[in-house]
Design a protein around this nucleic acid. Structure first.
Length: 871
RNA sequence: GCGAAAGUGGCGGAACUGGUAGACGCGCUGGCCUUAGAAGCCAGUGGGGUAACCCGUGAGGGUUCGAGUCCCUCCUUUCGCACCA
C-alpha cells in the first residue's frame, strides 16, 4: 500500500477489477440477489459531444443509487443510451458540412470516453442509440399499430410553425410563444401531419397523476395536472341559417349558469365561419392576417388588448331565441374547445374587457354582494361559484350555480342543442417534423390510393445516413433513392413520406428497450421483469413534455398487449443544476469580457468576507457576475477532464454530492472541492497508518470497551443510522458529512493502544458508507485493510447497520432548560427514574441560579433529551 | 395575474417526526513545522460584551412549557402556467 493517496493509480486498479468481474452486467432473476430487481435510470442524454461537471453530478447521483441499492441486496440494473436524433446534428451539419450521422456517432464515442474515468456502473451491453435502425424500426412498427387502432391519424390543421428551425412544433414545445429550441416567435400555419390521440388517455393520465404516482415530486404532478387541464362544463350551439342551410355554432362553457347573460358570440380568427364571412369582408380579412402574425409573446397576450371585429352576422340564442351578433376576437383560441365562446361580459373578465372596448351591452344575471359588481370596475365574481344565485334569468332565477348548470344543460339537451361535456386543455400530439434527422414516418403517398402505411415486412424504413443538409429545407425531399417507391396497395410508383417523427417519440420508450437488448420484437418478457422502473432521474425541464409522452406511450403499449403495467416510472427524482461563479470586466466597446475561474484570484478580509476578485494577468479588479448556470458564453463551464487529472474521479464524485441537496441547484467551488479531496487524503493516511492494527484486530466486544471508546462507538453508530436514512431519501450531501464525521471520530481514538477492534469496526462502517459515493478509494482501502475475507468484495458487501449495544447508553447527557432557554446540562444514569432526573436537574447549581426562589409551575421531561423547568 | 417552493453565519449548507440552531466543509485568524513557499498538523471562528450574560433562522403577529420547524399577514427570490372560455 502506498503511503500517499494517488487517485489515478487507485482508480485504474479499481476499474480494472470491476471490468474483470464484468461487474455491472445485470441479468434477470439473478439468484445472487434474493431481494429482487431494482431498475434505476437517468434520462438519456443528447450526444452534443460536450460533458461538464453538471452531467457528472446527475450521473453520479444515478451511480450512488445503483451502488447503495446493490449493497442493500437488490439485483440492480442501470443502463445508458443516446437521444441521438434531433436538430443540433442537422445544424452542426449545415455549419461543418458533415453528415448528422457521422457527427452524432463521433460525439457518442467521445462522450463514452469522457464517462469512463468516473467509474459509473452502467451496463453497456444494454446501450441504445435512438438513431440506430434496430431501435427506430419499433417506433415505426408501433406507429403502424396505432394507425390501425385509430390512435394515430392524419389531419390538416393550424399548427405552430418555427420559422427558424423550419418545422412544426407540438404545443408542449412552444414556450411563451416561442420555439423551445430556436427561441423564434412561432407562426401559425395550416399543414397536414400525423397526430397521436393522447387525449383519449387524458382521463387516465390525469387520474393516475392525481391519485397515484406517490413517488413523484408534488411539483411535477401538479404541472401535469394543469397541463392536462380538465374542465367540466356544457357544450352547446347557437343555431343559424346561412345560404339556406340550417347550421350550428358550437361553444363550450364552464359557466352555463350565465347563459342568459349572453350579449354576443366571439369566435377565433381561424374559425371556419370567420374564413367564410371574410370572403366578402376586407376588414375581417385584414384582421385575420393581423392575428396570424401578431401575438408574439404569450405573456403579453394575457394582458393584451381585446381586439376584435364585428361581423354583422347573427346567430340565435338557443334558449331565448334572440339574435346575437358574432364577433371575431383575438382572445379566442381556435385550438381549445370549438374555437368559439359565448360572450357574457357581466361575469367574465375577458368578455367584459372586450365588451367595454367595442361598446357591447353588459347584462347582469348573477346576484352579487353590494359593490362587488359594477360596469366601471370589474370585480372577480367569476372565481366564486359556490354562493352565486341567478337573477334576470327567467326560469333559472334563484338557482345556485350547480342547479342552474344542471337545468340549462337539461333544457339544451331537450332542444337537441347541447349537453354536459368534459373539456381538456391537452391536445393530440402532432408528431410530424419537416426535418431530416429523425425516424421516417412509414407512409407511402400514392396518387390513386392516398396515404398508405408501409407493410410491416418492409420495416424499417431506413433513413439515409449520408445526406448533408444545407439549410434549404429537408434533404429527404431531394433524395430520389429515398423518395422513389411503389404503392404497397396498387403497385404503381409512389413517393415516400418525408416527414420524420418528433424526437420525443424516441425518448418515450427507450427505457423499455434497455430491458431487452437484441429483442426480435419491440419488447420481450425481460421488459416485464425490469419494468416498471423503480427510480427515474432527470431534470425538471421534462416535467410535462417527455414524462407525459412516456406515460402515454406506456399505456398504448399496454393496450396493444405488449406490457402489463399502467405507469412506467414508480419513483421520479428531479435533480438540480450545477452552477458556477462567473466574473467579467466591461470592455471599452461596452462588451463584457468573461474570465475563466483560473484567471481570477479572490481576495478576502480578515473575517473571511470576500472583498474583491482580481485578474491574475494584471492584478486589477474584475466584477463578480454571481452564480450562474454553466455556459460557454460566460466561461464558467467546469469540465471533468482536467479536474479528474488533478484530484481524481472520487473527489469529483464526492464533491458534486457534497455541494448541496441533489434536488436543488448547487454551486461548483474549486476551494470546496479541494476540501473534499483533503478529506479523502486524510482518510487514506489514516488507513495507511492503521492498516496493520486493523488487519490484525480481533472481533469487537462491546462489553469490554471503556467509557471513552463506548462514546466513540455510540457516535459512529448514530452517524451511521443518520447516513442510512439520508441514503434512503437521496440526500447524499449529508451522507458525505457523515463519513467525514466518522473519520473525525476514529481519528480521536487512534492513539488509544487498545482501540484496535473499534478501529476495525469503525473503518468497515466508514468505508461501506462512503463506497457508493467514492467507490474507487473505498474499494482499494477495503482490500488493503483486509475486509474482503470477512465481508467479501465491496460491490456486494452487506450494508452496515447500527448495533443495538452501541446505541444503548449507560449514561445520558440531558439538556436542562428554564422557561425554554438552555441553562445547563446534567448527566444521569440511563435507568434513572423521571423523578430522580428532575431532582438532578433542579439540583444543578447553574439551573438553580435561574430558578431562584420562583415557584416551579411545571417540569416537562422529554425522554432522553431534555428537561424544561417552567417557573 | 394565477399556482408552487424557498428565505438560517463571510460562503455551500445541517437540524428526520416542534425539543441543545449553525452539524460537515469552505473561507478567515493565530500557532507549530519549514531557509522560504506549497502541503500538513493544532487551536479559534454567528453578533454584541472584560465578564456574568444578552441578541440571533426575511419582517410582524399567534399557538405552545418550548417554534428555523405549526398557523395568520406582509416582504423578497426562484420556478411553473399564462386569454383554456
Amino acid at each position: 500500500m502506498d503511503e500517499i493517496y494517488d487517485p489515478a493509480a487507485v482508480e485504474a486498479t479499481a476499474q480494472a477489477h470491476w471490468r474483470a468481474l464484468n461487474a455491472y452486467r445485470a441479468r434477470e432473476n439473478d439468484p445472487r440477489f434474493p431481494k429482487g430487481k431494482y431498475y434505476v435510470c437517468s434520462m438519456l442524454p443528447y450526444p452534443s459531444g460536450k460533458l461538464h461537471m453538471g452531467h457528472m453530478r446527475n450521473y453520479t447521483l444515478n451511480d450512488v443509487v445503483y451502488r447503495f441499492m446493490r449493497s442493500s441486496g437488490y439485483n440492480v440494473m442501470t443502463p445508458m443510451g443516446w437521444d441521438a436524433f434531433g436538430l443540433p446534428a442537422e445544424n452542426a451539419a449545415i455549419d461543418k458540412r458533415v453528415a448528422p450521422a457521422a457527427w452524432t456517432r463521433a460525439n457518442i464515442a467521445d462522450m463514452k470516453a469522457q464517462f469512463a474515468p468516473m467509474g459509473f456502473a452502467f451496463d453497456w451491453s444494454r446501450e441504445v442509440s435512438t438513431c440506430d435502425p434496430e431501435y427506430y424500426r419499433w417506433n415505426q412498427w408501433l406507429f403502424l399499430r396505432m394507425l390501425e387502432q385509430g390512435i394515430a391519424y392524419r389531419k390538416t390543421q393550424v399548427v405552430n410553425w418555427d420559422p427558424v428551425d423550419n418545422t412544426v412544433l407540438a404545443n408542449e414545445q412552444v414556450v411563451e410563444g416561442k420555439g423551445w429550441r430556436s427561441g423564434a416567435p412561432v407562426e401559425k400555419r395550416e399543414i397536414p401531419g400525423y397526430y397521436l390521440a393522447i387525449t383519449r388517455y387524458a382521463d387516465e393520465l390525469l387520474d393516475q397523476v392525481k391519485n397515484g404516482l406517490q413517488g413523484w415530486p408534488e411539483q411535477v404532478r401538479t404541472m401535469q395536472e394543469n397541463w392536462i387541464g380538465r374542465s367540466e362544463g356544457v357544450r352547446f350551439a347557437f343555431p343559424y341559417e346561412r345560404n339556406g342551410d340550417q347550421r350550428r355554432l358550437w361553444v363550450f362553457t364552464t359557466r352555463a349558469d350565465t347563459i342568459m347573460g349572453v350579449t354576443f358570440v366571439a369566435i377565433a380568427a381561424e374559425h371556419p365561419l370567420t374564413l367564410e364571412l371574410a370572403e366578402h369582408d376586407s376588414k375581417l380579412k385584414d384582421f385575420i392576417e393581423e392575428c396570424r402574425v401578431g401575438g408574439v409573446a404569450a405573456a403579453d397576450l394575457a394582458t393584451a388588448e381585446k381586439k376584435g371585429v364585428g361581423t354583422g352576422f347573427y346567430v340565435t340564442h338557443p334558449l331565448t331565441r334572440q339574435s346575437v351578433e358574432v364577433w371575431v376576437g383575438n382572445y379566442v383560441l381556435m385550438s381549445y374547445g370549438d374555437g368559439a365562446v359565448m360572450g357574457v361580459p357581466g361575469h367574465d373578465e375577458r368578455d367584459f374587457a372586450f365588451a367595454k372596448r367595442h361598446g357591447l351591452p353588459i347584462k347582469q344575471v348573477i346576484a352579487v354582494a353590494e359593490n362587488e359588481f359594477s360596469t366601471n370596475e370589474w370585480r372577480a365574481w367569476y372565481a366564486s361559484t359556490d354562493q352565486s344565485r341567478c337573477i334576470n334569468s327567467g326560469a333559472y332565477d334563484g338557482l345556485s350555480y350547480s342547479q342552474a348548470v344542471d337545468a340549462v344543460a337539461r333544457d339544451l339537451a331537450t332542444l337537441g342543442l347541447g349537453e354536459k361535456k368534459v373539456q381538456y386543455r391537452l391536445r393530440d400530439w402532432g408528431i410530424s417534423r419537416q426535418r431530416y434527422w429523425g425516424t421516417p414516418i412509414p407512409i407511402i403517398h400514392c396518387e390513386s390510393c392516398g396515404a398508405v402505411p408501409v407493410p410491416e415486412a418492409d420495416l424499417p424504413v431506413l433513413l439515409p445516413e449520408d445526406l448533408v443538409p444545407d439549410g434549404s429545407g429537408n434533404p429527404l425531399n431531394k433524395d430520389e433513392r429515398f423518395l422513389a417507391c411503389n404503392c404497397p396497395k396498387c403497385g404503381k410508383s409512389a413517393r415516400r413520406e418525408t416527414d420524420t417523427m418528433d424526437t420525443f417519440v424516441d425518448s418515450s420508450w427507450y427505457f423499455m428497450r434497455y430491458c431487452c437488448p437484441g429483442a426480435t420484437t419491440m419488447v420481450d418478457e425481460r421488459a416485464a421483469y425490469w419494468m416498471p422502473m423503480d427510480q427515474y432521474i432527470g431534470g425538471i425541464e421534462h416535467a410535462v413534455l417527455h414524462l407525459l409522452y412516456a406515460r402515454f406511450w406506456t399505456k398504448v403499449m399496454r393496450d396493444l398487449g405488449l406490457l402489463k403495467i399502467d405507469e412506467p416510472f414508480q419513483k421520479l427524482f428531479t435533480q438540480g443544476m450545477l452552477l458556477a461563479h462567473c466574473y467579467y470586466r466591461e470592455e471599452a466597446n461596452g462588451r463584457k469580457r468573461w474570465f475563466y475561474p483560473s484567471e481570477i484570484e479572490q481576495e478576502f478580509d480578515e473575517r473571511g468576507t470576500p472583498i474583491r476578485a482580481v485578474a491574475v494577468e494584471d492584478g486589477q479588479p474584475v466584477i463578480y457576475g454571481g452564480i450562474e448556470k454553466m455556459s460557454k458564453s460566460k466561461n464558467n463551464v467546469v469540465v471533468p477532464g482536467t479536474f479528474i487529472d488533478r484530484f481524481g474521479a472520487d473527489t469529483a464524485r464526492a464533491f458534486v454530492m457534497f455541494a448541496g441537496p441533489p434536488d436543488q441547484s448547487a454551486p461548483w467551488s474549486d476551494a470546496s472541492a479541494e476540501g473534499v479531496h483533503r478529506f479523502l487524503k486524510r482518510l487514506w493516511s489514516f488507513c495507511y497508518e492503521q492498516r496493520e492494527r486493523i488487519a490484525a484486530a480481533a472481533q469487537l466486544d462491546h462489553g469490554k470497551l471503556d467509557g471513552a471508546q463506548k462514546k466513540v462507538r455510540h457516535e459512529l453508530h448514530v452517524t451511521l443510522g443518520q447516513a442510512l436514512h439520508d441514503y434512503q431519501r437521496l440526500q447524499y450531501n449529508t451522507v458525505v458529512s457523515a463519513t467525514m464525521k466518522m473519520l473525525n471520530a476514529l481519528d480521536g481514538v487512534k492513539s488509544l493502544p487498545d482501540a484496535d477492534a473499534l478501529l476495525r469496526e469503525g473503518g468497515s462502517i466508514l468505508l461501506r458508507t462512503l463506497y457508493p459515493i467514492a467507490p474507487h478509494v473505498a474499494h482499494t482501502l477495503w482490500v488493503e485493510l483486509g475486509y474482503v475475507r470477512q465481508y467479501g468484495d465491496l460491490l456486494d458487501a452487506p450494508l452496515p447497520h447500527p448495533a443495538d449495544d452501541a446505541l444503548r447508553q449507560d449514561e445520558l447527557e440531558l439538556v436542562v432548560q428554564v422557561n425554554g432557554k438552555l441553562r445547563g446540562r446534567v448527566t444521569v444514569q440511563a435507568a434513572a427514574s423521571e423523578e430522580t432526573i428532575k431532582e438532578t436537574a433542579l439540583g444543578d447549581p447553574h439551573v438553580r441560579q435561574f430558578v431562584g426562589d420562583k415557584p416551579v409551575r411545571k417540569i416537562v421531561y422529554v425522554k432522553g433529551k431534555l428537561i424544561n423547568i417552567v417557573v
